[in-house]
Design a protein around this nucleic acid. Sequence first.
DNA 1: TTGAAAGCGCTAACAG
DNA 2: CTGTTAGCGCTTTCAA
Lengths: 326, 326
Amino acid sequence: MSDVARTAGVSVATVSKVVNGRYGVARATVERVQQVIHELGYEASLGAQSLRSHRTNVLGILLAEFEPFSTELLKGASQEVAGSGYQLLAYSSGDGEGAAVGWERRSLARLSGTLIDGAVIVTPTVVETENNFHVVAVDPHTGPSHLPTVDSDNFAGAVLATNYLLSLGHTRIGHISGRTDLMSAQLREAGFRSAMAEAGVPVDERLVRPGGFRIETAAGPAAELLGLADRPTAIFAGNDLSAISTMAVARDMGLCVPDDLSVIGFDNVPESALVNPPLTTIMQPLQRMGAEALRLLVDLIAGVERDTHIRLPTELVIRSSCRPHR
Amino acid sequence: MSDVARTAGVSVATVSKVVNGRYGVARATVERVQQVIHELGYEASLGAQSLRSHRTNVLGILLAEFEPFSTELLKGASQEVAGSGYQLLAYSSGDGEGAAVGWERRSLARLSGTLIDGAVIVTPTVVETENNFHVVAVDPHTGPSHLPTVDSDNFAGAVLATNYLLSLGHTRIGHISGRTDLMSAQLREAGFRSAMAEAGVPVDERLVRPGGFRIETAAGPAAELLGLADRPTAIFAGNDLSAISTMAVARDMGLCVPDDLSVIGFDNVPESALVNPPLTTIMQPLQRMGAEALRLLVDLIAGVERDTHIRLPTELVIRSSCRPHR
DNA sequence: TTGAAAGCGCTAACAG
DNA sequence: CTGTTAGCGCTTTCAA
């Protein structure tokens, strides 16, 4: 900025005013400065700017890692943000979901004082809201949260999945549940149990194991389930990654999906269509969730009064990983 | 930080030393300060820290928008970065590819002085390297570039695609080319022409139109091609999004893919398997490209001597959007 | 209409 | 071993 100031023969204060479109600068000066800015290709440093002004027009999306779930949200958010005047900054603590818990708190602390005007946090565990800084959670932690939230109807989706398996004649149905700290995972398991009870089919507790929502963490539980002498004939996986992991484990054990084992997932990330056979799953409108989260955040910042809890519907997507029992 | 200092009864300078693990602080003091930091949940502000120290351990990935191509790169980069001690920050100028050109220069200027230690830029047009700041380009602008680069063998991939169509008996083959400023788009068109020439099949210039690599920008050209009285029997789209767009246009015009029209794409983004019929395409190892780009960047920063141009192979992925002619 | 000066949260010399 | 001080690039009074 001092380069610009020197070249244009003004002070940095004046350049700042021009950059920010403040009143009280002569027309001619504005033009001259803008000219120089253009020539030099000057762009204000985000770091310095935010440090001083606490307003950056940048919105943050905080996530543990870039995996299919969060990148779908990102796509939706990205479309929504276009033309809003905001820029998007996706930040990953980088250690992956497995390592350091509390990444959401740390990332938020690191960015919120400065740099971003608000944040959407993906699958956060604990977040204490700071005053005057807006946060919206996507698929948050279990328990009552005061946070503005976007999620989908996980319970209904799980019922959908379980009923589909039931309708195919399966009764020995296993469930690989998700991150036990997440509301969504609990609701999916609850939906599973509810549908089973409704159908009068008892749940064998040995067939229900936590899989952590990730490929690596789901492989173990999947192997245990499939290694049982009386193994399940169908598995409802807590999300698509767990389902994909389960299918890989099944293949390694010489089982054929769907002939020997039906598998249904949850999420409908694009990857679910890439596996062989293509995965039957429950769709959450992920891109729309990302878009809604972003819109909600923008509204919150703008002070718009509105509903701060958005729940979107889920839907059964039938592909080829399930087949009738027997 | 001053809160921490006050609570611990030391100066901010001392806190800073503790935070950064500098020598010259008494054991007892270190422990006390760390205790307070933990209690207060203090985390250094990225903005302030970077402004002063010019070292943040954050690597940037700059992109025009979060679409399937760049999010695949992100997934690969995210896996590669785990355990490297770096964090990842993906930044989107937000106006979408359509709007403001020069986003890469602006984003870079905004973040590079501070905030990030290096950047990978996705499909950049023009980037002047600043000294002492490391940048690697993925799928860069046409023309000789001094930038460290990661890309795939676009020419060979295009030949693969064209030969496949040719082998199916097609001769009226259209090509929806990509962003004309990108090396990759030019090479794909060149590969197409080369394969056609090799086969002795003339290229009808009316069947070659630029599609800009995006759903919205490809729809027009696709409609023009398919509206021709002697429309092509097969189309090689410059990337998967163009192919998906072409399929949608074809459907709207009452054409059936692949019966009335064969379509082949390029990229193999996960979305290509989601459309109906699933898209036959040329695979670029996108996640690996993201991982390689990140590793290259880390090496550059570390001062490792190594090859700074990485080209990965492409591959034909046959699904259901192409069929023999007649 | 302009610029001098203070300060955002932090780090690095340097002095004590 | 610890604190004082200057300053990173910017914005914002406030006085000229």
